[in-house]
Amino acid sequence: MSVAYRTEPVYLLASILATTRRYLQDVSAYVIQLVRWPLGPLFMFATWRITYSASGRTSADGATLSGFLLVGIFGSILWSSSIWGSGYAIQNERDDGTSGSLFLTPVSRAAVVAGYGLGSFIWFLPSFAAVGVLGWITGAHFAVHAPWAVVLAVLALCIASLAAGFTFSGIFILTRRGNLVANVIQSPIYLLGGLMVPLSVLPGWLRPFSDAIPVTHAVVALRESTLLGAGMGSTVHDVALSLIASAAWFVIGLIGLWRVEDVAKRVGQLDLY
């Protein structure tokens, strides 16, 4: 009796889901992972909230401080889940010594990366819950006029984060210091992506950099639709900008992934196998 194979689309989907499942089995094996994700955002919120109080500001880009920060933290959790999930996928396989086995299989490398992304998103659900609780406790003022605009903005933010994850998954390996780079890019994104800092305080010459980051526009869309009662019209505009930037990042990411395997196979010295 020989082995039966799936058709190509089913194969792709099944390998994504199998990787997601494996990712979850893997992370749940560590105690630290169980506490880290719900606690992290709480500490982070408190730190920034106190910083803002110390700065003498009472609002940020028109929203209340708590509201502004909650949306920013929501975005940063998505970002982290993407960077440490899909972004770190290949690096993780290398660290665990399984990249050789993985690359021996015919599976689509993008499917594996996507599987990590999905798994990590699920793993981060407690963090999102923690943010929700914070919103409730701090009494952040929300003003939603167009619920669909919020949904759209959240989707754009997810896509933007995933795009970043894809882009970095290759870069992490090529730089050989994935962990460090993943940590290091966090602060520029908090600043340039307008996650924790109002875009209005940035000097003008930094704006083009901000605009090139897909997360920037998605966060603006989410803030305006949840905190300032923006309608569909302005949200669609920002979401569109975000999607354009995301598309560009995805392309860079796919090239990067291809490069990694190519370089590894040619040089044979990336310790990839």
Binding site: T51, Y52, A54, S55, G56, R57, T175, R177, L180, V181, N183, V184, S187, P188, Y190, L191, L192, M196, V197, V201, L202
Partner: peptide, 22 residues
């Protein structure tokens, strides 16, 4: 380069927030 750049962005964020009022 990467290592060195690390805290500068954080510093920029915090500095920009404080600059106006404190």
């Amino acid at each position: 380069l990467v290592w060195v750049a690390f805290p500068v962005f954080t510093l920029a964020s915090i500095g920009l927030i404080y600059r106006a009022h404190r």
